[in-house]
Simulated scan of single mutants.
Amino acid sequence: MKTSLRWLVISSVLVGVLSACSSTDSTTSTAGSSGGDAVKAASYNAQLGVGYLQSGRLDLAKEYLDKALKYHPQSVDANHYYALLQERLKDDASATRYFAKAVHLSKTPSPELMNNYGSHLCRVGQYDKAITAFKTALRDPLYRTPEFAYTNIGVCLTRKGHPTEAISYFHQALQANEDFGLALYQLAELNYKSQDYAKAQAFWFRYRDNAPVTPESLMLCTQIGRALNDTAQVEQCTQTLLTRFPNSAEAQRLN
């Protein structure tokens, strides 16, 4: 099984929390009215930038986030969103720098910031630092989506080669949100790999009921069905894969 969906967990976390980020920058100005105007202008441009980032307009996202940082280089939000933009532009060094600056500037980093920072660290292979960031997010009692951070810890532990420990975090994600598709998928995949095919199937069905299917998830469905000699499941998932995602790598493998 490919690992691309495993990383889709992290990228989905980024997309999911952007809309939940505060529209009020956590830094303040002490430079009088002109300084206050700069802070407001930075916040306005940062929100425009992150909106364009969400919609995939990276050129406009960069334009407005550059303006935000020009108005107020110490803006936590602008640095946070600029780090996300640099990730999308595949500049990991710059993303790391801006994430670290946002965390440094914030007296109490938001759980969304720490989750995003952890997601970045996990993606570039700094698993221990990533897990620390996720756990920092989880310590905030006001964190509205802890299932993301729990799932990301599990992802990092899986990448580190500790799938048994990862499973406990995926279950904690489901305790926070029993229908959280990303954690359900992870459990389906891990149980398939450990040859507990019945349990893998049960988690896959729950995933299917709560999240959009993808080429990777349909391939996993096919693999689980074959392991259980469930010809109906194999046929259904194979046909869906070939019909809905004919150009995917998974469909090519089946062909």
Rank of each mutant, 00 (worst) to 15 (best):
Q54K: 11
V50N: 05
L228D: 01
A173V: 02
N152F: 09
A176T: 08
Q175R: 10
Y52R: 11
C237Q: 00
G154Y: 01
A78K: 00
E112C: 01
G225P: 05
R206K: 10
G36T: 08
L182H: 03
V17Y: 03
Q201E: 14
Y197I: 07
E250F: 00
R253N: 08
G225W: 00
V39C: 09
G16D: 12
D209V: 11
I224E: 01
Y192G: 01
S33I: 06
D59A: 14
N210H: 12
K160I: 04
Q195W: 05
L218G: 03
G36C: 05
R244I: 06
L85N: 01
P146H: 00
R139W: 02
L53H: 01
Q233K: 09
S26I: 08
Y44S: 15
H80S: 05
F180D: 02
G35S: 14
G125N: 01
N177V: 11
D25C: 04
T108E: 14
L174D: 06
V213Q: 10
L48E: 08
Y117S: 13
K101F: 04
L182T: 03
F203T: 05
I131L: 06
T158A: 09
L48W: 09
D128C: 10
H80T: 04
Y52S: 05
L157P: 03
G16I: 09
P212S: 05
Q252R: 14
K62T: 02
E87C: 13
